[in-house]
Design a protein around this nucleic acid. Structure first.
Lengths: 245, 245
DNA sequence: CGTGCGGTTGAGGAAGGTCAATATGTGTGG
DNA sequence: CCACACATATTGACCTTCCTCAACCGCACG
């Protein structure tokens, strides 16, 4: 309602109408904001898992380190995202989470989510919907990693970030900040940083996009989308059942 | 309680104690069992999505067909699994689902899940936990596809199926039926059927496992697990929050 | 003004794909 | 019980994509 609504309330409001008590419940999830620094780990694999985290400022990613020393980035989180839903059913973290930028997070224990389930039918559904949406994101990532060429992988990741940023930022432009190193892009896509470099050079030569420092400029967004065979269904969260009630 | 409990009740009961009314609710999800044939599609990508499906008999898989004609298998479902949780937040199917064997499924509309949310706190949590578990499965699959060699991918899939079967079947043995063709194994792992064939031959030569027809025999399960760098955390669903309440 | 991290470029190599020919079944109808 | 058709698996030769290793550049920061 007011200007200073929390990030998560703004985020969830577009799924369904929230009652005042719903908003109060959500507000209680963000009681203790905590500043975190770029490069700081929120937790590591195998840490005990008993809390979630809302990301109210900054970027983060979850990852798994492999035996051979390589790292797989699983998910990239933007402000408004809830981190750690994955581990609700587990005792230990299945992946680490690291801040990409300086930011602000709010922890809340699993117990608090149970209260939400107990007290708000609407929020129960929204959280369930969020979880199923994260499944959809993971699914798309899986397809991207398993079936596409390096060019397609890179184009897909960049275009997905472009769309996701448009949802949260009012008027995102074709030029946006993507604070991931080429090493990190490689870690997310199962490619080496060397190959990321070559691929980005290729895109520049082909007039598709320009990558400079931490910035991306899409010269031809449609061409990027088609290069990636991008099908954005998985980002269009209809949430029919709730609005349809 | 009784012998003829539905598959899903048996499946969910090991997450938490279910009250009689919980069981009645669950029972209502399996009101209309339907026989389906091997090779039959439960639905296709882009079909309207408004229902879930419990698989009470047979195997199934979800998949995405790519523009180049290849197919990515996303998830393999065993009896007791719920199919379609992924699309709760969406209007359309994000993936098709196909029966591997003849089997029996029970459809129920999203609406019915909302009733569950409204009426049972315990079941709300269990369903949320199921969703987060499916996320964990997907995550593991993603890591498998992005970071591992062909040998590791195949070993990992086979070992995962071995463990998952042990959970449902009372005493699964080292020899079990895996009703997937080499083509389908390839579709699941992002490999060609040709390479699956070579990889399986390699395993046989190395004395790790024997694949014959639809059967797998693990000659040395530990060696298979270690070849796959298998870390089974993601299958050990502690579900602390619920039992801890 | 070094020092170090992130990015670029080149040469050579390995994992897995493609294409195609050849088994090996498996099921069906005669 | 056999014959044929069709799906599934095996094997070989060759090719493409991406990796590895290594040198080098350049900007940022102390």
């Amino acid at each position: 309602m007011s200007e200073n609504d929390s990030c998560i309330i703004r985020h969830l409001r577009h799924y369904a109408d929230l009652s005042d008590s719903d908003e109060a419940l959500l507000d209680s999830l963000e009681r203790e904001p905590r500043e975190v620094e770029r490069g700081e780990a929120l937790w590591q694999t195998d840490d005990p898992a008993g809390r979630f985290c809302t990301l109210s400022k900054g970027w983060a990613y979850s990852f798994r380190d492999m035996e051979d020393g390589s790292r797989q980035i699983l998910e990239i989180y933007l402000p408004g995202d809830i981190i750690g839903l994955r581990e609700f059913a587990f005792q230990e973290r299945l992946a680490g989470v690291m801040m990409i930028d300086d930011g602000v997070v709010c922890d809340f224990p699993h117990r608090r989510l149970l209260e939400v389930f107990r007290e708000s039918f609407t929020l129960s559904m929204i959280f369930f919907a969020l979880s199923s949406q994260q499944q959809a994101l993971l699914t798309e990532r899986l397809v991207n990693l398993a079936r596409r060429s390096a060019r397609q992988k890179v184009a897909h990741l960049i275009y997905e970030m472009y769309l996701r940023l448009q949802r949260t930022m009012p008027y995102a432009t074709r030029r946006f900040r993507l604070p991931l190193s080429q090493q990190q892009l490689g870690d997310a896509l199962g490619l080496t940083s060397v190959h990321i470099s070559r691929t980005l050079s290729g895109f520049r030569e082909d007039g598709l996009l320009i990558r400079e420092r931490q910035w991306v400029e899409l010269l031809d967004p449609d061409a990027v989308a088609s290069e990636a065979e991008f099908a954005g269904r998985y980002l269009r969260d209809g949430l029919g059942p709730i609005s349809g009630e």
